[in-house]
Design a protein around this nucleic acid. Structure first.
Length: 467
DNA sequence: ATCGGCTCGCGCAA
DNA sequence: TGCGCGAAGCCGAT
């Protein structure tokens, strides 16, 4: 592979610094940030292809910040469980994984210098802190630094402006799918590290790495294991047992009909290509179910990523559309029948048994039923003193308890429910104005609420469902 | 059980 | 400039 061809402009690649790799360089560093996997990872492939073209070895570095805004022990545990699989899978590609604690741009810059890197390749991550880390690294190093958008099917760079709704991005994504929804090749490093030259990092062992983690807060979740192996296992179970009836039954609360892969996707332990291609290839799946699932995996997930990548206020109410901000402001002084503190909500102590069940499910399992995520956030708007407070409470609870907290899907979900993001106006009512309302009565009719509440009660008594 | 209206603005056809 | 239609709803009429 010729490096000039490899490094030609490409929608999936962003050049953070200019220039060609130094001839004296001794390796290519792959900074694994969000794409925490060895399989179907275009950023890793780009690093391996670059190294192979330069006849250099590749080393992957994962820099683990000892704390991260809102991240709890349950998130670190899940992430570190994933690193065990990833280290083994990288080994098969003749790429070592170095894990070091510290501030990521500082850790990566230090390692790149220590190892005399010819180039640093990273993966994209649309959240603010990831963007800051990459900008800081670009200022610290003097070798070419490229980023590869590895965790979307259609590269984010195709959509330079914030999309207004799913319907505006949908036709664009569908037009580009033939180009991007293709198998990702498996590349192997041609030049491995010799054992004596191998850079030293932390030994990847979940228990000892967890000792270094400074984050406090809620502990690990029982029965929801991190890692590529677990993700692949869940994917195959989903395709076999649930996908055939996904279109009709996706909102069933007992048993769950969803793939339960959101946290693995969030940490990049599985990539969207792996899931989408497996679902496309599955046999005996009604078109309706296949399409409903791919719509959520690709269109809804990538419009959420577009929102976070293109709207700097993705985690504030003020990032929501004008019509919604105006209507919420108009209803700001409407009387609230219930007014709960953040603490009361966090404890799952409202008057509404369905809402309490959803909140407690999230606390116990790190997940919440998809349908109830909407209801849950809308009720916080109804019961908080004002819309901005509601937005912040919902996002804070989501980020701390959900295993996929701080994911674009979560930011978009809260903005949709409370701020009308990607939605349209509906008949005007108290508090909500023309933001879509959801009622307890019709949710109970549409959704097996009693079954769900019973399920959560069993969870509280220590019984696990669907592990 | 099913249906239309509610309300705003984007994107495309003209 | 006009028009169709949309991130998962609600309500009342038939």
């Amino acid at each position: 592979m010729d490096i000039t061809r490899l490094w030609a402009p490409n929608a999936r690649v962003r050049f953070m610094t200019e220039g060609q790799p130094s001839a004296e360089g001794e390796c290519v560093v792959y900074w694994m940030q969000r794409a925490q996997r060895a399989r179907d990872n275009p950023a890793l492939n780009y690093a391996i292809a670059t190294a192979n073209a330069l006849k250099l070895p590749v080393v992957t570095v994962f820099a683990l910040a000892p704390t991260y805004p809102n991240a709890q022990r349950r998130h670190y545990q899940f992430l570190i469980e994933g690193l065990v699989d990833t280290e083994r899978d990288l080994e098969a590609l003749r790429v070592p994984l170095v894990v070091r604690f510290g501030n990521p741009p500082a850790v990566v810059a230090k390692l790149a210098t220590e190892l005399n890197a010819a180039a640093v390749i990273g993966d994209e991550n649309p959240v603010r802190i990831g963007e800051q880390w990459r900008d800081q690294l670009a200022k610290k190093i003097h070798v070419p630094f490229h980023l590869v958008d590895a965790d979307v099917i259609v590269p984010t760079s195709h959509f330079l402006r914030e999309e207004y709704a799913a319907r505006t991005i949908r036709p664009k994504i569908h037009r580009l799918l033939p180009e991007y929804l293709k198998p990702v090749p498996r590349l192997v490093a041609r030049r491995p590290w010799s054992d004596s030259d191998r850079p030293k990092g932390e030994k990847i062992d979940t228990k000892s790495l967890m000792k270094e983690v400074k984050a406090a807060g809620v502990g690990p979740v029982q029965g929801y294991q991190g890692g590529t192996d677990e993700a692949i296992k869940r994917l195959h179970t989903f395709i076999k047992e649930r996908l055939p009836r996904y279109a009709a039954d996706r909102n069933e609360p007992t048993p769950y009909m969803t793939s339960e892969l959101s946290a693995h996707l969030h940490f990049g332990q599985i990539g969207p290509h792996t899931i989408a291609l497996a679902v496309e290839a599955a046999e005996d799946i009604p078109d309706e179910s296949r399409e409903a699932f791919l719509e959520e995996l690709i269109v809804r997930r990538e419009v959420a990523i577009n929102f976070v990548a293109r709207n700097p206020k993705y985690d504030e109410l003020s990032g929501c559309p004008e019509w919604a901000l105006a209507t919420l402001a108009k209803h700001a002084s409407d009387p609230r029948k219930y007014n709960y503190s953040a603490k009361k909500l966090e404890a799952g102590e409202s008057h509404d048994p369905l809402w309490n069940a959803a909140q407690r499910e999230m606390v116990i399992t790190g997940r919440m039923h998809n349908y109830l995520r909407m209801y849950w956030a809308k009720k916080i708007l109804e019961w908080a003193p004002d819309a901005e407070t509601a937005f912040n409470i919902a996002l804070d609870l989501n980020d701390r308890y959900e295993m996929d907290g701080r994911d674009p899907n979560g930011y978009t979900g809260v903005a949709w429910a409370i701020g009308g993001k990607h939605d349209r106006p509906w008949p005007e009512r108290p508090i909500f104005g023309t933001v879509r309302f959801m009622s307890y009565e019709s949710t109970r009719k549409k959704f097996d609420s009693d079954g769900y509440i019973a399920r959560v009660r069993s969870l509280e008594q220590g019984k696990l469902f669907d592990a």
